[in-house]
Simulated assay, not measured.
Amino acid sequence: MTPPLRLSVLDQSVARAGRPHDESIRHTVSLAERCEELGYQRFWLSEHHALPTLVGTAPEVLMAAIAARTRRIRIGSAGVMLPHYSPFKVAEQFRVLDALAPGRIDLGVGRAPGGDQRTARLLNPDAQSAASFPQQVLELKAWVSGEDLPVGHPGHGVRALPTGATAPQLWMLGSSGYGAQLAGHYGMPYAFAHFITDGEGCEQALALYRSTFRPGLLARPQATVCLAVLAAPTQEEAWHLFKSRERARIDRRSGRFGPLLPPEEAAREYDSAEQIEAEMLRGRAIVGSSEQVRDRLLVLAAKWQLDELVLVTWAWDPAAQRRSYELLAQAFELA
């Protein structure tokens, strides 16, 4: 018998036009509480810097707030942009989180800057830091799991504290074959950021991850895909709400960043090139009634041989975003 599909959530603390940024942060925390009630498996948080659209800059801080308000759901980063930081410090932070929520912490890491290059240099002046990403992951893996680093390494004999009966689960988040191959090489779980690439490269990355996998943190491959979805009581309402994300995606590709607009304001006229792009975006979008979205997700999960999917939902109205997760939890009978 095929096991039921597990669903998780990735929230990016989206900025909303006409609403203060701090409201977005508080909404993320309350959304996590609601997703636990609904039966979602994980609640992940992203890291972005100096982007007017996304105000989730410190996932580890938000994770602590969510840990204090939840009891069952796994909490994670998707992901910490590791080239900005010391792997040892990241390990310490996430070990503290694991002490607050034992056995519920996911430490997802990525190589991307999470913002522009100027901001990346403010976070870490070393412009070549991303080149050290594989070594950083190896060090982080050791400090998180309690292994020792080799003799001769500056960190040999150093432990990341606090220790406990459990440890954070290290994940690799990626949107290309690079992260997939690295996750396979280290035997790590892997999450593909489908919502960033609109699906481009997803199947190839999953195949590369599975073909290069060798036992490490895991004995067998464990993969998931993070997908942008939006459900509403009717298909018509869902497509109306989608106008906010559609406008944001098209504006971003032309270098225009700003808070998420209400659907009524987002639906302004496109030029010819934007119109073509909008039609392509709609053709790929997973939008509709809860039954329509559920059926699409089941097909994709079977196609990619996955038993878990991570959902990313943008809506200008926080109540509409929450309702989308409620409808899908009901459609999949999560609770």
Score class of each variant (00 low, 15 high):
F94W: 06
D106N: 06
V109C: 08
V158D: 08
L149M: 13
W171Q: 04
S129C: 12
A99E: 12
I105Q: 05
A131D: 14
V137Q: 01
L138R: 14
P134T: 11
A101T: 06
A99W: 04
F133I: 04
G155S: 09
L149D: 09
G152I: 06
A167K: 09
G177M: 10
L173I: 07
L97S: 04
D98G: 08
A180I: 00
P102F: 05
D148G: 12
G146N: 10
D148S: 12
N124T: 10
A99G: 12
I105G: 03
L122E: 14
A112W: 03
A127P: 06
L138Q: 15
G164K: 10
T163N: 08
M172I: 10
S145G: 06
V151H: 14
P168Q: 09
A127L: 13
P150S: 01
Y178A: 12
D98N: 13
M172Y: 04
R111G: 00
A112Y: 00
L161M: 11
M172R: 01
G110R: 01
Q128N: 14
G155R: 05
R159F: 00
V151T: 13
D116K: 11
L138N: 12
E147G: 09
A120R: 05
Q93W: 11
K141C: 11
E139T: 14
S132K: 15
I105K: 01
S176D: 08
Q169L: 11
T166K: 02
G152D: 09
R118S: 14
Q169P: 01
R104L: 03
R121Y: 13
T163M: 09
G155Q: 05
R111V: 02
A131I: 12
P125A: 02
G103A: 09
H153Q: 08
R95F: 03
V158A: 08
I105D: 04
S129V: 10
